[in-house]
Design a protein around this nucleic acid. Sequence first.
RNA 1: GCGGGCGUGGCGGAACUGGCAGACGCGCCAGGUUUAGGACCUGGUGUCGAGAGACGUGGGGGUUCGAGUCCCCCCGCCCGCACCA
Length: 815
Amino acid sequence: MSPEGGGYDPQVIDATWQARWRAEGTYEVDNDDPRPPYYVLCMYPYPSGRAHMGHVRNYTFGDLLTRYRTMRGYGVLSPIGFDSFGLPAENAAIATGTHPRAFTEQRIGELTSSLARIGASYDWRRLVTSHDPRTIRWSQRIFNRFFAAGLVYRKHATVNWDPVDQTVLANEQVLADGTADRSGAVVEKRDLEQWFFRITDYAQELLDDLDPLDWPEKVKTMQRNWIGRSEGAEFELRLCAPDGAPDPAGRSFRVFTTRPDTSFGMTFCVLAPDHPLVADITTDERRADVEAFVARVRATAEIDRLSSERALADRGCATGAHVLNPFTGTPVPVYLADYVLATYGTGAVMAVPGEDQRDWDFAGAFGLPIVETVQRPDGWDGEAYAGDGPHINSGWLDGLDKAAAVAASIDWLVTHGIGERRVNFRLRDWLVSRQRFWGCPIPIVHCPDHGPVPVPDDALPVLAPDDVELRPSGQSPLVSHEGFLHTTCPVCGGPARRETDTMDTFVDSSWYFLRFCDPGNDDAPFDPAAVARWMPVDQYIGGVEHAILHLLYARFFTKALADLGVAPEQLREPFARLFTQGMVRLGGSRMSKSRGNLVAPEDILDVEGADALRLAHLFSGPPADDVDWETVGIEGCTRFLGRLWRLAEPASAAVAPAEGDAAGLVDREAHRLIQRVTDDYERWSYNTAVAACMAFTNHLYKEGSTVFAVDTLLLLLAPMCPHITAELWARRHDGDHLHERSWPVADAALAAVERVTMVVQVNGKLRERVEVDAGIDAAEAERLALATPKVVDALNGRPPRRVVARPPTLVNVVV
RNA sequence: GCGGGCGUGGCGGAACUGGCAGACGCGCCAGGUUUAGGACCUGGUGUCGAGAGACGUGGGGGUUCGAGUCCCCCCGCCCGCACCA
């Protein structure tokens, strides 16, 4: 290490350049910036304190892209914010007595410092946090717009209730085994009055608009499955006596099916245990059993309900009621079963055991008849048959295949006024109420005379009071805060009570990316013109764990806001391109606080510095893949940065300059490197981009360096390791700022290869290598190949059976 | 069960459109430098074989002049949804 130049000291260099970027506003961009716009966005973080490795990975990719696109001449919008409402702050408040705001703002400070320390570059003027009263005001304004448009409504819902923490939980806080992720208690069901967003109005559009998005196919598929469109028919079943005599009261219910073609095989039907008609249709003889069954299902934890261990006979119950199968005119019994869900379709199904395995199993357990309505293929040895085939035992549908029989059966239902074609979605409306304190208050006043009334726009934001005591009482402290609770009705001025529920924090993350476009706006959530300039986000980066909820909600918000005229009308999708990065694991398991296997990025920043840490993440493998930190060799990256320093630092000069022809060859190599690395950046192949830069550095150590080659290397590495490259560039170029330079452009003529190694194969096996001119034609390649000793040997005087020439890289001689 | 993906050295991975398998890095081995250690520099490193060479991308088959890459079957692993009628 040369004493004159000084060694590579990341502590000093990182801090120097981070301060300079911040002070000079290097990555600030105005809405009238003359450069073409490009919007890079990392999913904004929940402020949990100092950054963990997942953050580092995420924000390294985002920062790299910001710097790269800036060098390519774009005005890059790269904002950051914090998803600062949420459960952990509230739990900490209950545990320690700290106000959630103080707790949260401390965590924001820590995460902000971490982000700065990895060198992430943002336009800090655009900072948006969910708990900021300015954000709350516009979240509430949007709620009111949705309310006015009928996109918000209130209804009774069965929600998850944690009996230990005494609170309602979101679905995502309930584990697969039916226990709460925080308390571990078995979650109960409770009926409460809740607020919903009518996302199902957009189900079809949310499905259709996925197709053109440049998103991982996996994420699009997950969303399609979540939306869960299915086509079929809905029709009416009329109650009757066991002998088929009409029900004197004329009662009926409707069923949804995707297989109306199999209706002739309906030998019973099934209602959900909580179907509203259950009590009404149950016969007196069956009432005791039915009531016991319904009570049992309600009390049974989800996990037990789903268990395949349970005897089927315990999962259903006869009601004693009968309905007429309209296709056959015969009566069939009505059962209850826990596998029929009240919330999907009509909460009632016709059962066709011949063509549905669940119905088959149920029929077996209850001794119900099975009628096959589709001809089994030869050799079929299964039970229920769901495939295609000619219909049998189906009256006028006999002989038709599935598609024809579906169409004919629906026509028949329509003609007879019994039912109609029907599309159902699995997607439910979005339950947004949370009985929590640390969230955006729902801006509603309940008036005894006028019902729920929105708080007028000019009275927003509705802010939660600070003088509350957070206790695990099962209610938001707002419920018992008299000053907050009591207000007047905006319509009549009479006494009224404030809504005490807050909004799901997914509401905040459903529009924050729009606010980033116009964060200072005091008249509206954002100016549609500002949004039109930047949106949609050109590159969105985040974890695949948000593949469904956040991304679906944000898409819904964008569409709804566009339809309401809040966002530009033509903005139908928020995120044009999505990249989901892999998770950081340690020794195979997920890194997490609870597992106690966190590797603190700050410890690495203290020693190896930001550039080595970033490089380690970039080099470890494809960005989309999970990475096991145990196998990441930061040593190689640290070593490389040392080599780079001794190559490029003017006074450290460990590499001699290339002389004469060698210099020209090195420069040509540099042009090829530009092509290679640029291509790698464009296709998210950063591990190979790093590899190419390492290989080139090795090459320079061997062949000698040139000013052009080293400068090129620094430019290409600038987005990946911005500190060391900026420092080296400044030392080489009289204080010049690397990150204001343009991305290098390869000279195609110089990059072109003149001499290449041509591979000669005999029968597809490698036999010779020949140095040839890159411009040779097929005839010349063949001539050279046939003249090589191994080929002459193999031919032994005979002519080749065939010669395949792919000049200038390969010739295959078939003998 | 349905959907998506993956399987390459001791390890992370590379091979983009079918054309030199294993780039780059870790680790390991040897040499240099150093008082020594560390750091650094150079070379080597898929398996078998003294060598020529043979074998080699989870297993089996196929297409092709040529297959890690395309097709079929099987095995194993990961992820998502999971009684959605």
